[in-house]
């Protein structure tokens, strides 16, 4: 079947099998390898992207379901004015080590901060509780998102 969606503002169309998962469409048909997968069972959140502004686990959505919808991935976070504060926050606070879970964490972080611009650290912990990081023990990720909350965003990208 033919599927068309808008990814990070660019139209992407491909002929695919109906069973294809959105994460594979993003990685293989759109060629955006920043979105990873880690678990198969919707537990790890490594594959998190936005569909119509909602953070979702793209291993548990069919590409066909996103037909005609807006998708945004980690590659779409950086704007003309530079990195999004969540990206900068992860650098400032050492919020990543191997970097594998990072894109999913960033997408959740931005989505969350758009809804809760001044969160407590406990709220941040809850926001990322559906995502697994094996390197950082989460403390610095929480600090990074908190850093981002305290630094205004200049880009227009929003969930």
């Amino acid at each position: 079947m033919q599927v068309s969606m808008n990814i990070n503002g660019e139209p992407v169309t491909a002929d695919i099998e109906a069973r294809k998962l959105l994460v594979h469409f993003i990685r293989e048909d759109a060629g955006l390898r920043g979105t990873h997968w880690g678990c198969d069972t919707s537990n790890c959140g490594t594959c998190t992207v936005w569909v119509d502004g909602e953070a979702v686990k793209s291993c548990t959505v069919l590409a066909a379901q996103a037909d005609g919808h807006e998708v945004r991935t980690v590659e779409g976070l950086e704007g003309a004015d530079g990195l999004d504060p969540v990206q900068q926050g992860f650098i400032e606070c050492h919020g990543l080590q191997c970097g594998f879970c990072t894109p999913g964490m960033l997408m959740t972080a931005r989505w969350f901060l758009d809804r809760n611009p001044s969160p407590t650290k406990d709220e941040i912990r809850e926001a990322i509780s559906g995502q697994i990081c094996r390197c950082t023990g989460y403390k610095n990720i929480v600090d990074a998102i908190h850093w981002a909350a305290e630094h205004p965003r200049t880009n227009e990208v929003t969930a």
Binding site: R33, V74, E75, Q87, L96, G99, T102
Partner: peptide, 19 residues
Amino acid sequence: MKRVEDQRFVRGQGNYVDD
């Protein structure tokens, strides 16, 4: 010192085997 590696990772530009 902030990590050199982070510049690519926060942009989704890491290069892992499945990439």
